[in-house]
Computed example of a mutant assay.
Amino acid sequence: MNPLIDNFVSSKRIAVIGMSRSGKKFGNMAAKELKTKGYEIFPIHPEAQEIEGMNCFPNLKSLSGKVDGVWISIPPRNVSSVLEEAALIGLKNIWLQQGAWSNEVQQTIDQLNLSVVSKKCILMYAPPVKSVHKFHRTIVGIFGKL
């Protein structure tokens, strides 16, 4: 497997950017599943105090030193500022969920000299991989993409 992916999924304290108060975002579902897989989840939300029973933090700076990585599932127009903040606090394990990447985001990654997993679904790699995610991972392994 990719060493960036290995490093990320072996981290157990993950900041999650992309959960909503309504509970209807992919970030909410992914955070719940990661939690069942043994990850300690730290939701980041600039306005919410709590989402789905988990205390929220306003930004990554408020977690400096408390997390091993950040998983990002927000629109690309909002990602560059998150990457800048991650670089500022020295956070090295960064995962951009499918849909969070853009050419502008890639420019920020390059400017900050970050190593980032991008355009991949975390649920296809965070062990144990089950159900449809296991099938998708097999397809990607055979064909290189879904």
Rank of each mutant, 00 (worst) to 15 (best):
G27Q: 01
N7S: 11
H45C: 13
D6P: 01
F8E: 00
N103I: 10
I5H: 07
F26D: 06
H136F: 12
G141L: 12
G99H: 01
V116C: 05
L96A: 08
Q97P: 11
D6I: 14
L83M: 07
D6Q: 14
S102T: 13
A86I: 11
S81Y: 08
Y125W: 12
V117G: 00
I5P: 05
V117N: 02
V82H: 07
I142W: 11
L4R: 06
K145P: 04
F143A: 15
P46Y: 09
E40M: 11
E104G: 14
V79D: 00
D6E: 12
S10C: 09
E33H: 14
Q49Y: 00
I44S: 03
E52Q: 11
T138N: 08
L34Q: 02
F57C: 05
R13V: 04
K134N: 12
N78Y: 09
A87E: 01
F143Q: 09
F26V: 14
A30F: 06
K25V: 00
Q111K: 15
G65K: 10
S118K: 15
V79R: 04
S10T: 00
E104V: 03
L114W: 02
S20V: 08
H136A: 13
A87Y: 05
L60I: 06
G65A: 09
F57I: 02
C121R: 11
L112S: 10
N7F: 01
K145N: 12
I41P: 06
C56W: 03
V16G: 00
K145L: 08
K32M: 12
S64C: 10
K145E: 14
I14N: 00
P58W: 07
V105M: 04
G53K: 01
L146M: 12
N113P: 00
K61G: 06
Y125A: 12
P43Q: 06
W101D: 10
G90C: 08
V79Y: 00
L96E: 01
Q49M: 00
R21M: 08
F26I: 11
N93G: 08
G27R: 04
Q111L: 09
S62K: 15
P76K: 02
N103F: 10
L88E: 14
H136Q: 09
G23C: 14
G99W: 02
S131M: 09
G69H: 05
E52V: 03
L34V: 12
